[in-house]
C-alpha cells in the first residue's frame, strides 16, 4: 500500500503528459457524438443575433488572438453565418492590433465567400485603432472620426454600405448599431460594458474565453449584456443551436475525456495525500 502511494506521489510529470495526450488524441479518431444542452446565457446570445432583421447592423469586435482561436473562432463563424443568412450588415473592428485582425479577417472572408457577400456592400472591415477608451468614446460621435479609412486604406464613407447604414442622419454612430457582439480574450469587454453599454445603452452580447468567463457572468446576471458564450463548451453549444458542426463540435469530445482524466488524477492525488498523512 505504502509503495503504491509513494509511486503515485513521485510519478514523473512526463507520464502524466503522455496519459493526457492519449486522452486528447483517441477521441479525435473515434469521433463519438456528444449530446448538447445549451445553457440559458448561450441561447440568449444566439437569439440576440437571430432577432436581427434585414439591413440591421451588427458591430463585431474581435478582441482576441490565435491563442483563443479554438474557443472563439467557432462562435464568430456561426455569428457571421447567422448575420449573412439574414442579410444583416456586418462591421468588423478590433482593439487587439494584428492578432484581432488576423482572426477576424480570416473568418469574415471565409463565411462571406460561402454566402456570396460583397465587401463594401454587405460588410466592412474597419480595422484597428490603438487606445481602447478613446476609440469607444470616439465611435459614439461618428465612426469616421475614429476610422476615416477602412483596413484597406479607402475612406469608409465611399462605400455603398456606409451610405445605406447612416439612415436618416449624416453620421454613423452607436445609435445605428442594433447589436454589438464582442469576442473577448481580455478585459476589453469590461470597457465595452462600462463605457458603451452604460452610457449609450448599446445592446451587447459576448463570446469570451473560459479564463475570462467568471468575470463576465456578473454583467449577464445584472442584465447589462443580453447573452454570454463562455469557453469551448459555450462554443460547442452555440454551434449545436445553429445545427452546424465546426471546430468546437469536433474537439469537444477530447475536452470531456481530458477533464475526466484530470478529475481522476486530482482524486487519486488527494486520496493518496490524506492516506499518507494518516499513516504518518
Amino acid at each position: 500500500m505504502r509503495a503504491i502511494l509513494d509511486f503515485l506521489a513521485l510519478i514523473d510529470r512526463r507520464i502524466i503528459y503522455a496519459v493526457l495526450i492519449f486522452a486528447i488524441i483517441l477521441p479525435l479518431f473515434l469521433k463519438p457524438t456528444l449530446p448538447s444542452s445549451p445553457t440559458k446565457e448561450v441561447i440568449e446570445a444566439y437569439n440576440a443575433v437571430e432577432s436581427l432583421k434585414e439591413d440591421d447592423i451588427i458591430l463585431i469586435s474581435t478582441d482576441y488572438g490565435p491563442s483563443a482561436y479554438p474557443e472563439l473562432q467557432p462562435v464568430l463563424e456561426v455569428v457571421l453565418e447567422q448575420s449573412f443568412k439574414k442579410n444583416v450588415k456586418v462591421l468588423l473592428m478590433t482593439h487587439w492590433q494584428f492578432e484581432g485582425l488576423i482572426v477576424g479577417i480570416n473568418a469574415i472572408e471565409k463565411v462571406a465567400k460561402r454566402y456570396n457577400k460583397v465587401y463594401g456592400k454587405d460588410y466592412l472591415i474597419l480595422g484597428f485603432k490603438p487606445g481602447v477608451l478613446g476609440v469607444m468614446i470616439g465611435l459614439s460621435e461618428d465612426f469616421r472620426k475614429v476610422f476615416p479609412t477602412d483596413y484597406y486604406g479607402k475612406p469608409i464613407d465611399s462605400y455603398e454600405i456606409y451610405k445605406k447604414l447612416i439612415k436618416d442622419d449624416t453620421v454613423l454612430n452607436y445609435k445605428d448599431i442594433n447589436l454589438l457582439f464582442g469576442f473577448e480574450a481580455g478585459a476589453t469587454g469590461d470597457s465595452w460594458v462600462q463605457i458603451v453599454q452604460a452610457r449609450y445603452g448599446v445592446k451587447m452580447a459576448f463570446a469570451v474565453t473560459a479564463v475570462m468567463a467568471p468575470g463576465y457572468f456578473p454583467y449577464y446576471q445584472a442584465k447589462q449584456i443580453v447573452g454570454l458564450v463562455g469557453g469551448l463548451k459555450g462554443a460547442f453549444d452555440y454551434e449545436s443551436l445553429n445545427k452546424s458542426k465546426g471546430l468546437a463540435s469536433l474537439i469537444m469530445i477530447s475536452q470531456v475525456v481530458v477533464h475526466s482524466v484530470i478529475l481522476v488524477f486530482i482524486l487519486l492525488g488527494n486520496v493518496g495525500f490524506i492516506i499518507r498523512r494518516i499513516l504518518g
Binding site: 486528447i24 479554438p70 463562455g230 471546430l247 475536452q255 477533464h259
Partner: peptide, 23 residues
C-alpha cells in the same frame, strides 16, 4: 475554484486544437 476550472478548460482547448491541427 470555478475560475481555476475554467482556466484548465481554456488551456486544454488550445492544446486539443493544436493536436487536431497536427493530425
Amino acid at each position: 475554484g470555478a475560475s481555476f476550472g475554467y482556466t484548465i478548460m481554456a488551456r486544454f482547448s488550445l492544446l486539443i486544437s493544436r493536436f487536431y491541427f497536427l493530425l
